[in-house]
Each structure stands twice: as structure tokens, then as C-alpha cells.
Design a protein around this nucleic acid. Structure first.
Length: 431
RNA sequence: GGUGGGGUACCGAAGUGGCCAAACGGGGUAGACUGUAAAUCUACUGGCUCUGCCUUCCUAGGUUCGAAUCCUAGCCCCACCA
């Protein structure tokens, strides 16, 4: 995949296209350029939270494809821009985060990103930068003279993110309006400092990316490029990366390895092949094989399992994957007999658990225990669950509301596994 | 600042004195069918010590045997005008 040889390998842009990671480019010439020479590409990550989310994974994958094709990649953490907030795609003004919060979040994002990029690559080492390093001491007057002067109101006002907000009741503050200038300046800095000529980002970043391209054209009289990545949605049109309304994070303190694995494992057949192309680096032949496996033996869920394995290993490592797989096999296995509580505790370290005193468990009704352990929001809810036949105690269905937890139900005298439906588990530890 | 409209459960939205713990839709949870998928169908969806009781319809008071519904004050939102 080295440059200069004439081997008929796909260029990075072609790869992105085949993988479903290409939405649009600002100039088709970039395809030719990236095929012929090493370029430097960057993508920015917003520190609005202390962990990246599954949605960001898409952008990370795109960066990796660039690195694998021998290009230099830069991941930028928006430690400065995060203090303002990107208005793109937002229908209302965001609340400012405190400086401490943004600093903390930036640290988390840096840690996340460092897992995915190769900083010791012999010819194309990745770099991680934070735009606060050049923004924090930049005075407003200088910024307006250096950068602001080169932006015309017309083009700023015609940006999608601005139009949307001006039409809405919420309106828009000057701070957010000025956001594209900040991001444009980032691109300029990376162009000057690192020779970066391509910025990639989600499709909502188009306006911010073109702002940078324009700035560089005016100030450096050079054409640089932009590329956007599609917003991934499932087959039902829902935005990818949410489970029960909660975002899936790449940090295991927020989304455990088990939950992460399960999120991908539950991918619908209609989406799984597409996701394999987007979220894994599996070769096309293998994906095609999984596609036919899904068609002929859908009940084996081979493609979904593979997707979950690849992504979990990628994000949480071999150990994380091992824990996730083991936890899953116990939770979805038929029986709990023969298991020791020590094993269970290890496996369940990753599953939701609750700790209750023995007086709150032994001889109490399952309904109360399920509510106290937090599996159900209230006793009424727990009662309804039993009536619907959806509550399980140690993987055995609870048939009667009156059922009480007996001493003998406790595994090793200290552990109880409660389950609601097929997929919601709760480990109860008795103090 | 003026005028008009409005705040109902997780969301949207009906209800304008008792039949209201509050229609309907969405969402959510569970069940059936399955494959931890999708689709479909069914049930549930304020709380509790559960044939009953308690707390809800922006907030605080009031009228009434009885209020989500009427009155008073306040807060908030929206539209148009300035």
C-alpha cells in the first residue's frame, strides 16, 4: 500500500466509499491526490463529554483507514472550541461548560483516542493535538484582524447551521455564530504547522470544514480539501449509537464492556453487514461470507457475534472482550446451577449489580426485592412484571406475586440473579 | 410595552363542574412467535401495606357537597403588533 509503486490497490477514498464511510468531498481531485502521495488529514473531536460515543467511532474508523493507507493523521481535541460549542445540527443554544469541565473532558477524549491510533507508526505516526494550545492566548483583537477579516457575512449567514437557528425561535448568540471561524483557524494552524491538507468529519461538519478551506485559500492561496462521513442510522432510520435512549460510550466507566458487546450483538440483520464494513477492518471476502451465513442460517447470528467481538476487542482489548463474552454466556445460559458465587462475581463485575442487606432479601417477596435492587422502578412495576410473566429469579420464571426469596435461593448464601425479560439482568449481592 | 392564545402523565394531545388516575397516538416494558434480529399480534404503562387507599392536570390561595375543569393572584411559554 506504499506510494510510488503501481500495484492496483484501492486508494483510501475508494476504500472509504466501499466501506460506507464516504458522504461527500469538497473536490473530487482529492481522490487522485490521496492515491498518489502521502497527505496529512485531521478530524476534530468535541469535548462536550468525558468519553467518546459510538457515533464518534465512525470518524475514528475513517481516520484509521487513512493511517492504514500510509497517510499521516491528526486527531484534534477541541479543548478551546468546546468552551464555545459547535452550533452545527443543534436546534437550540447550548449551555456553556465550565473551563474545568472542558479540561476534564478533553483528558478523557485524549485517552479514548489514544487507543485507536498508532503513534509509533514508522512512516505515518498519528498525532494528538488540542486546539487550546494555540487558542488560549490568542487575543480577540488579533483574531478578528487575522481571521475575522477574511470572512464575509454573506457566506456565514448562508451556512446551514446558522440558517436553521435563525429561523428557529431559539435564535443564536454571537458566540455560537462565530464558531466556524474558530474551527477554520484550527485547519489553518494544522496546515501551517503540519502540512495538513484534508479535514474529515461528520456530515454536519460540512459548513465548518468549508470555512477552513476558504480561509486557507485566502491566506495561503492554496487549495485544501474536506471530506464528510455519513451519519450512521439503523434500518429504522434511528440515529446509531443509542440504546434505550442512552448513548453508548467508548469508556467502560460509562458503558461496560458487557453492555458495549451486547449493543453490537443486538444489531438487526438488516444493519449488521453494513455495520461490519463501517466498524470493523475485516476484509471484504470475510464480510461477504458472513452475509451469506446470515442469509442461510440467520438463527446462528454469526455476523452479529462477529461484529460484537471485533468492536469490543478493538475498544476494550482482549480482556474486555473475554469478560463481555463470559458475562453474556452466563446471563443468557439456561441454568445457573453449578456456578460458584466467586465466578459469578467476576463475570458480573461488568453487569449491573445492587447490594442489599440480608434482611431486605431473605424471606422478602421477589416483588420487593426486584424493586429494591433497582430492576424495577417501583413495587407496582415489579408486580406488573410478574403478572406479565417477565420476572426471573436465578433464570427461573417467577410464577406468583406471592413468591418469596428463600435462603436456599441464594447462590453460596450471598448472591441472587434477577432478570426482567430476556435482556435485563441485575445481580443482587447480600451483605 | 400592547393584544390575543396557551401551560394536562415520558413526549404529542383530548378533556372546560361529578361517569377522571384522566380518551387517543407515539415512546417504553413484558408476553406470544423467534434467533438476545426485524415484522406482527396481546397486555401493561402515577404510587402503596392493592376488591381499597394515597398523590397528580404550572404555582399559591378561593368558590363548591364535589374542581384538570369555575374565580383571584403569581410564574412561565407562544403568536401578532410596538
Amino acid at each position: 500500500m506504499a506510494f510510488g509503486d503501481d500495484s492496483p490497490v484501492d486508494s483510501v477514498i475508494q476504500i472509504l466509499r466501499k466501506r460506507g464511510l464516504l458522504d461527500a468531498v469538497t473536490n473530487p481531485a482529492i481522490e487522485e491526490i490521496a492515491a498518489k502521495q502521502q497527505i496529512t488529514v485531521y478530524a476534530g473531536f468535541d469535548p462536550s463529554c468525558d468519553s467518546l460515543q459510538a457515533g464518534n467511532y465512525v470518524t475514528i474508523m475513517a481516520l484509521r483507514h487513512f493511517q492504514r493507507c500510509g497517510h499521516k493523521v491528526i486527531a484534534l481535541v477541541g479543548g478551546a472550541t468546546g468552551l464555545i460549542g459547535d452550533p452545527s445540527g443543534k436546534t437550540s443554544e447550548r449551555k456553556f461548560l465550565s473551563e474545568e469541565q472542558v479540561a476534564r473532558n478533553s483528558e478523557g477524549i485524549r485517552e479514548n483516542l489514544s487507543r485507536f491510533l498508532d503513534f509509533n507508526h514508522p512512516t505515518a505516526p498519528a498525532r494528538l493535538v488540542d486546539n487550546s494550545s494555540w487558542m488560549k492566548d490568542y487575543s480577540l483583537i488579533r483574531f478578528l484582524r487575522d481571521v475575522g477579516k477574511h470572512f464575509r457575512m454573506g457566506s456565514l449567514l448562508s451556512k446551514e447551521s446558522v440558517k436553521l437557528r435563525l429561523e428557529s425561535e431559539a435564535g443564536m448568540s454571537f458566540a455560537e455564530f462565530a464558531y466556524p471561524l474558530l474551527q477554520a483557524y484550527d485547519f489553518l494552524r494544522l496546515y501551517d504547522d503540519a502540512g495538513c491538507t484534508l479535514q474529515i468529519g461528520g456530515s454536519d461538519q460540512w459548513g465548518n470544514i468549508t470555512a477552513g478551506i476558504e480561509l486557507i485559500r485566502r491566506l495561503r492561496n492554496t487549495e485544501v480539501y474536506g471530506l464528510t462521513i455519513p451519519l450512521v442510522c439503523d434500518s429504522a432510520g434511528r440515529k446509531f449509537g443509542k440504546t434505550e435512549g442512552n448513548a453508548v460510550y467508548l469508556d467502560q466507566n460509562r458503558t461496560s464492556c458487557y453492555e458495549f458487546y451486547q449493543f453490537f450483538y443486538r444489531t438487526a440483520d438488516a444493519d449488521v453487514i453494513r455495520y461490519l464494513r463501517i466498524f470493523t477492518l475485516l476484509p471484504e471476502e470475510e464480510i461477504t461470507a458472513l452475509e451469506s451465513a446470515t442469509r442461510t442460517r440467520p438463527e446462528d447470528r454469526e455476523a452479529a457475534r462477529r461484529l460484537a467481538e471485533e468492536t469490543t476487542r478493538d475498544v476494550h482489548g482482549d480482556e474486555g472482550l473475554r469478560v463481555a463474552v463470559r458475562t453474556s454466556s452466563v446471563l443468557f445460559g439456561e441454568t445457573m446451577t453449578g456456578l460458584k458465587s466467586d465466578d459469578l462475581l467476576k463475570v458480573f463485575a461488568d453487569a449491573p449489580a445492587a447490594e442489599l442487606p440480608a434482611s431486605k432479601v431473605v424471606n422478602r417477596s421477589v416483588v420487593e426485592v426486584a424493586a429494591d435492587a433497582g430492576l424495577c422502578g417501583s413495587r407496582s412495576e415489579a408486580r406488573r412484571l410478574v403478572q406479565a410473566g417477565g420476572l426471573y429469579l436465578n433464570n427461573r420464571k417467577v410464577e406468583n406475586i406471592e413468591t418469596r426469596v428463600a435462603e436456599s435461593d441464594l447462590i453460596d448464601g450471598r448472591l441472587l440473579v434477577l432478570r426482567s425479560g430476556r435482556k435485563n439482568h441485575r445481580l443482587v449481592m447480600v451483605r
